[in-house]
Each structure stands twice: as C-alpha cells, then as structure tokens.
C-alpha cells in the first residue's frame, strides 16, 4: 500500500511528446508527475480496449431518448 510505481523512460517520453503536441508547458516536476499518473492510465486503456463489447455501435449513445434499451 502506498508505493508509487517508478516512472519509465518510455512513459516520460510519451507524456512529454503529447503535452508538447498540445501546446502545454508544465514544469519538469509536473511532467514527471503526469508521467507517473500515465502508468495507471495505460493499464486502464489496455483494460477498456480488451473489453468484450462485441460489435456495439456507439454512435447513438447520446441520441436523445435512446438510453437503455
């Protein structure tokens, strides 16, 4: 409990590149913190891409009145 996973060089590179591409300029310390948070996010992204959602078409998700059924 409470241990912080190490920031990998790969995650640091990805985070720095994506922040730069978006025009953001955090401090070095903040980039490292974001890279730290990116580790769990990568695992979460892997989880949702592995989810068995079949052939679901999400394009009607927010069409009014079509929630649920």
């Amino acid at each position: 409990m409470g241990t912080v996973p190490p920031v990998t060089a790969e995650n640091l590179t990805i985070v720095q590149a994506m922040l730069t591409a978006s025009g953001l300029q955090p401090s070095v310390e903040e980039v490292e913190r974001l890279a730290e948070l990116y580790g769990p996010i990568r695992r979460q992204l892997a989880m949702i891409h592995a989810a068995d959602v079949g052939d679901v078409d999400p394009s009607n998700v927010f069409r009014a009145g079509e929630l649920g059924a």
């Binding site: 985070v15 994506m18 903040e30 974001l34 079949g54 999400p58």
Partner: peptide, 27 residues
C-alpha cells in the same frame, strides 16, 4: 491543471473505445 492535462494523453481511438464500452455497458 494536472487533472485536465491528463486528457491530453488519451487518443481519439481511446475515446471512441470509451464510447463503445459505455454503450455496451448500458445495453
């Protein structure tokens, strides 16, 4: 700003998959 900046780390494909999970989960 750190919370909002995390959104920069999610790709278009990732976001579309979030939507697919939402729709499948709802159904």
């Amino acid at each position: 700003r750190l919370t909002l900046a995390l959104g920069a780390l999610i790709s278009g494909g990732d976001l579309a998959q979030c939507e697919r999970v939402r729709q499948a989960g709802r159904e």
